[in-house]
Amino acid sequence: MSLPGGPQDPYSTPQQPAGGVPVPPPPPPPVPYGAPVAPPAAYGAPAPGYGGYGQPPAMPPTGYGPMGGTEKNGLGTWSLVLGIVSFFCGGFITGIVAVILGKQSKRAQANGQATNGNLGQIGMVLGWIAIAISVLVIIGWIVLIIIGSTSTSSTTFSN
């Protein structure tokens, strides 16, 4: 049905009403969804890696102060310190905090509010390693418990 109406419509109206009734319904929905999605898209880079946390609405007050400050350098430093500590101590919780602060530090540098995003990057990597190590330890510990409970000899716990 679009064939007869095709040559007339595209020239008369810029939009392609090709399907007429059935097709238009899909286009409108993207519009209402497009509006709320658009703001997060502006922060596109940090948002996807940010995982399940606060999500876009939490951080966007980026328009805070004037550019080129160091007022958020604390984020990167804390991330590095916590990353080192959690790396050497197998800290799960401190590793999570190091990762979160490291990401915020990198974002702060991108927004011109920090100059030490590299520290945040290091802290984030160390934090991830610490999380992985502690998860492995916990898994191995659970496996040991299962083995110990099934073998009926509790000597495996002598460690």
């Binding site: 007050p61 805070y64 007022e71 604390g74 430093t77 310190v81 500590v85 602060l101």
Partner: peptide
């Protein structure tokens, strides 16, 4: 406020030194 408070960097270094 949702954003983490801005802190100077020295408390982090002091914490690291103490630890």
């Amino acid at each position: 406020a949702r954003v983490i408070a801005r802190t100077p960097t020295w408390p982090a270094w002091v914490t690291f030194g103490v630890i």
